[in-house]
C-alpha cells in the first residue's frame, strides 16, 4: 500500500490521538480518502468511529496529529460551522432532523447558500427556489411527504431526510454514521442504492455495523480497533484478515 500524499486527498488524517480522562479514544489514527471515493469504516463498539467523526467535523479537538481537508485546509483550527461551510456534511448515528419543521423546511435550511443571520432575516435565505427543494426530495424519495412535520416521519424516512439535508448542503465530503441502524431490509437495500448514487458526485465515508450493507456498498473498508487502523482493503480481504477475525468478527 502506497502512503497517500496530502495533495491528492479530500480528507487526510495523520497520527491523530485524543484522550478523555485518561482513556485513549483515538490512538495515532491515520487515514486518507481520495476525491470521489466511498469508504466504509467498521469496528467494534468503542473503536473510536464516532470520535473520529467528531474530530473531522470540529466537535472534538485532537490532542495531537494532523487533519487536512482538500489537501491544504487544517481542520483542527476550525469550528463546526466553518467546517460545514467548507463542504463537509455529517449525518448523525441517531437521526437528527428538525422535528418542529416540515420536511421541505428541513431541506430549505440545509440548502447551500448564505448562512448569516442577516441573510436569514432580510436576504437571500428567504428567496430559495422551491425547485431545488423538490429535486432533493425526489432524490431521497420524500416528495409526497413535503408538507408533513419531520416529527411525524418513520425512522427510516427520518434517516433519508437527513441524507437529503446532507445533499442539500452539496458537500464535497459526506460523513454518514450508521445510516441503516433500525431500518428494514428493504429500506437498507434502498439506502445502499441511494448512497452509491450519491457517491458518483461526492466523497463518502460510511460508518456501519451491518456487514451485509457494507458488502452491498462494494467499496474499500477500513477496520478500526482501539482507536487506530487495524486493517484496510476490500470487504473480502478484510474479512479474511486474522486479526480482524480475532478482535471483531470472530467473537
Amino acid at each position: 500500500m502506497t502512503s497517500p500524499t496530502l495533495t491528492n486527498t479530500v480528507l487526510y488524517l495523520d497520527g491523530v490521538s485524543v484522550t478523555f480522562d485518561g482513556f485513549r479514544a483515538i490512538n495515532k489514527l491515520s487515514l486518507a480518502i481520495a476525491p470521489g471515493e466511498m469508504r466504509a469504516i467498521i469496528g467494534p463498539n468503542g473503536a473510536g468511529k464516532t470520535t473520529m467523526m467528531d474530530i473531522i467535523t470540529g466537535k472534538t479537538r485532537p490532542d495531537e496529529g494532523e487533519v487536512f481537508f482538500g489537501g491544504m485546509i487544517d481542520l483542527t483550527m476550525l469550528d463546526e460551522a466553518e467546517i460545514a461551510a467548507l463542504g463537509i456534511g455529517r449525518k448523525f448515528q441517531k437521526p437528527t432532523v428538525f422535528e418542529s419543521h416540515t420536511v421541505a423546511d428541513n431541506i430549505r435550511l440545509a440548502l447551500a447558500g448564505a448562512r448569516s443571520p442577516f441573510s436569514a432575516l432580510f436576504g437571500a435565505r428567504n428567496r430559495i427556489a422551491e425547485e431545488r427543494i423538490d429535486a432533493i426530495l425526489s432524490t431521497v424519495r420524500l416528495t409526497e411527504h413535503r408538507t408533513r412535520l419531520a416529527a411525524d416521519l418513520s425512522h427510516g424516512q427520518k434517516q433519508w431526510l437527513e441524507i437529503g439535508m446532507l445533499l442539500a448542503q452539496d458537500p464535497k465530503l459526506l460523513l454518514v454514521d450508521e445510516p441503516v441502524a433500525g431500518m428494514t431490509d428493504a429500506e437498507t437495500a434502498e439506502t445502499a442504492h441511494l448512497l452509491k448514487e450519491i457517491a458518483h458526485e461526492h466523497s463518502v465515508v460510511v460508518v456501519e455495523h451491518d456487514m451485509a450493507f457494507v458488502r452491498d456498498l462494494g467499496c474499500k473498508v477500513t477496520v478500526l480497533h482501539e482507536g487506530s487502523v487495524l486493517a484496510e482493503g476490500s470487504i473480502d480481504a478484510v474479512s479474511a484478515n486474522e486479526r480482524v477475525i480475532e478482535v471483531y468478527l470472530g467473537r
Binding site: 478523555f20 480522562d21 482513556f23 479514544a25 464516532t50 470520535t51 467528531d54
Partner: peptide
C-alpha cells in the same frame, strides 16, 4: 463551562 474539575468526553 463545566467548572474547575469537569468530566470530559462523549
Amino acid at each position: 463551562p463545566r467548572g474547575l474539575f469537569a468530566l470530559r468526553g462523549r
